[in-house]
């Protein structure tokens, strides 16, 4: 394996493909798939992943252009560079798919996820949870005398970190939306 640590996203500015096509190292990629908003399109995309044995780490979907009938599916997936290329090719040849963007390869991008985190506790634990929530800029959206529901947005790593801190303080359950992402600049 190459000893060089080549930052993901840097290859789109290079005249050469800096990563070996034969690398066996799995990478995480965020794909934005613009699809025709029609019945069954999500099943079609998910079926491709399950049918061909690809991974889905997270997935979000919503209509983004009502008049143009377009939905945006954001998929975080893992695979070797060859597998990622194959996933993109398989997606882009599907009839209802308009475009596939690999946000990991297209340069820097903004990635955000929303989480709702329910924490139950009394006394010191409750105070500590609230203090940490402030540090993480989480909002309290529901409260009882014994519990909070925090709402926070951030990268998946930030949400992971917050959830890890809440666990010993009384984490009850967590709901996450999966990643929504856009390329930086234009």
């Amino acid at each position: 394996m190459s000893a060089l640590n080549i930052k993901k996203g840097s290859t789109s500015h290079s005249a050469y493909d800096l990563r070996s096509a034969n690398s066996e190292v799995e990478e995480s990629h965020t794909l934005a798939v613009i699809v025709e908003n029609e019945p069954g399109v999500l099943a079609r995309v998910i079926g491709l992943f399950s049918g061909r044995g690809y991974n889905i780490d997270s997935l979000t979907v919503a209509e983004v252009d009502h008049t143009g009938h377009r939905s945006r599916i954001t998929i975080v997936t893992r695979g070797t560079p060859a597998v990622i290329d194959q996933i993109e090719a398989q997606l882009s040849r599907m009839v209802p798919v308009h475009a596939v963007h690999d946000l990991t390869m297209d340069g820097p991008s903004v990635q955000r996820e929303l989480a709702l985190v329910k924490v139950r506790g009394k006394g010191e634990h409750r105070i500590e949870a609230l203090r940490l929530a402030e540090i993480f800029r989480a909002n309290v959206v529901d409260s009882t005398l014994e519990s909070f529901v925090f709402e926070m947005t951030g990268t998946p790593e930030k949400i992971d970190a917050f959830a890890d801190l809440m666990r010993p303080l009384g984490l009850v359950e967590i709901a996450r939306t999966g990643v929504a992402a856009l390329k930086r600049g234009f």
């Binding site: 096509a21 034969n22 060859a82 290329d85 194959q86 090719a89 398989q90 882009s92 040849r93």
Partner: peptide, 11 residues
């Protein structure tokens, strides 16, 4: 004609 056929099995 199919982009997914290229580099699927053989580089």
């Amino acid at each position: 004609i199919d982009p997914s056929s290229i580099n699927k099995v053989i580089h």
